[in-house]
Structures are given as C-alpha cells and as structure tokens.
Amino acid sequence: MSRRNATLKAIIDVILYENPSTQDEIAKKLGITRRYVTKLLRPLIRKGVVKRAYMVDLQRFEEFADVFGEEVTSREYAGSFFIKELLRDMAGHVCKQLEKSFQALADYDKELADEALRMDYVTNHMHEKIRSSVDTAIAMNPYSEFGRAVVFTEIAYDLERIGDHSGIIANFTVKEAYPVDPEIMDYLRRMYETAVRMVKKAMKAFLNEKLELRDDVMKLEKEMHRIQRKALNCIATQMAETSFDKKERSTYYISLSRIVKTFERIGDISVEIVDTAVEFYMNIPRTTTPERFRRL
C-alpha cells in the first residue's frame, strides 16, 4: 500500500472510531497538515462516501476497497474490512504477547514476564474498540448485512481470552521460585509452537475465508493433546520423585500443570475460531457440544 493510501486509511479510521468534528481535529490526531487531509478526502466527499462532519457511508465505501488492496471475500460487505483490519492487528498483538510470555518462561526472565503482562492492557483496549465499532456499525443500519458483524465481537473476545491465557504463562515466571525443568520445558515449547500455529491458521481462515485451513487446525489439535499427555506424565513422574520439604516446590508442579492446560485451552479457542469462520461464510451452524466432550 502506498504512503498516500495508508494515510487516507488512517484518516478514515479516525473518522470511523474517534468521531472528529473538523478536518483540523483529524490533522492534529495524525500529525499531518489540514491541507493534506482536505486533499485526500476531497474525492470521497465529492462521491458522497465521506459526509461532513464527519461520517463514512459504509454502504458505499466498498467501491473504494481496491484502493487499499483489501481482499474482499465472497461474503464481504461494505466497510467490514475496517473491522477485520482491527481484528488482524489484535491477532498480531496477541501472538506477540504469547511469544513474550513463553520467552519469559523459557529464560526465567521476570522483567520480560512483566512486559508481557502489561501487553494485556492493549489487548483489552483492542477488544473494546472492536466491540464498540461493531455496535456502531449495527446501530447505523440494524437491518443490513452488518447484523452479522456481531461475529467479529466473538472473535475479538476469543483473542482476548488467548491474551488472558498468556498472562497465566507470564505469571508463572513472576510468582514461582524455580525455573522450569529442561525436560518439561521441551514439552511446553512444543505445545507453545503448536498453539501459535493454530491461532495463526484459525485467524487466517476467518479473515481471508481460507476454510480449508480447518483440517490443518484439527490435525494440530490432535498433536496438541498428544504432547499434553506426555507433558502431564512427565510432571507426574517428577512429582513422585521429589521431596516436598519446601512449600514452593509443591505449588511449582501445580502451576506447571496449569500451564499445560493453558496451552490446551489456546488450542481449543483456535478450534472455536475456525468453526466460527465456517459458520460465518458457509452458514453451517457450529456444534453446541462442548469441545472437550467431542474428544471423548
């Protein structure tokens, strides 16, 4: 995307989500001149896509989607790619949060763990922004295709839950008195790598209508549970061989088991996301059977 189009997209983002009253206000928020704002908005104002002061006609904006290089899916509708862009950014942030949390665990780095925990504030803000954007879109035209956009709120909530699970991983490093045993860490690393792949594939399935990725996600889910069983067996073996002279040592193994469960839950959420994608694009209802019972 050219710098000009990137700036125009930023301007429209401000109009959609920050409700500016004047072009001066838009210019100040973005650190650019009012004249440049006027120049970029003039064609959209002339076409009636942007209305003073200042609103975007989302029903007409799809005419300009190609300006931003957006991939329009078979079920796309006007303006939805703005919310998808927010979801894409949130997914990237949550993956970085998960990466930092795991790296803190692997290195027993308390400062890095604190950084990962602070990232959760941004995750929560992103969730709230998406929820607010969907509410605004539906309120503008409750009888349009935007009624289906409530699904975007569900995906944002799923991503927020993954952020919460990342916090559990980071908290281990902050609170526990011992670093993770290398043998157990090997299993946790494999679970982490599997979880990240599941999240990325599930989000790609939803954002780009790549529904064929569901098979990949389900294969990774089986791998996740295979590693999980080995990890829990390893933890149980070490517990049986350990003397619990110190209270910290007993909580250490309980916390490790919780981390194993955390990676499993991230995998489960990824399955939920990809199932939501299938329902969203293909109108195939998701199963009401809880995921944990489907595995029995």
Rank of each mutant, 00 (worst) to 15 (best):
R3V: 15
R4D: 03
N5Y: 06
L8P: 05
A10D: 15
V14I: 09
E18H: 11
D24C: 00
L40F: 05
I45F: 14
R46E: 14
K51G: 02
E62L: 09
F64L: 11
E71M: 12
V72W: 08
R75N: 12
Y77I: 12
Y77E: 09
K84F: 04
L86Y: 15
R88M: 07
D89F: 06
A91H: 10
A91R: 12
V94N: 06
C95W: 03
Q97V: 09
L98A: 13
E99K: 13
D107G: 11
L117Q: 07
D120H: 08
E128P: 04
I130D: 11
S133G: 07
V134C: 10
T136A: 14
I138T: 01
P142E: 06
E145G: 06
R148N: 13
A149K: 01
A149I: 07
T153R: 10
I155K: 08
E160L: 07
D164P: 09
I168V: 11
I169L: 11
E176C: 13
D181C: 00
I184Q: 03
Y187K: 12
R189K: 09
Y192R: 06
E193Y: 03
T194W: 00
M198P: 02
V199H: 04
K200I: 06
K201M: 08
M218R: 10
K219M: 15
H225L: 07
I227M: 03
Q228M: 15
K230E: 13
A231G: 10
L232C: 02
N233V: 03
Q238C: 02
D245K: 14
S250C: 05
F263T: 04
E264K: 14
E291S: 02
R295L: 06
L296R: 05
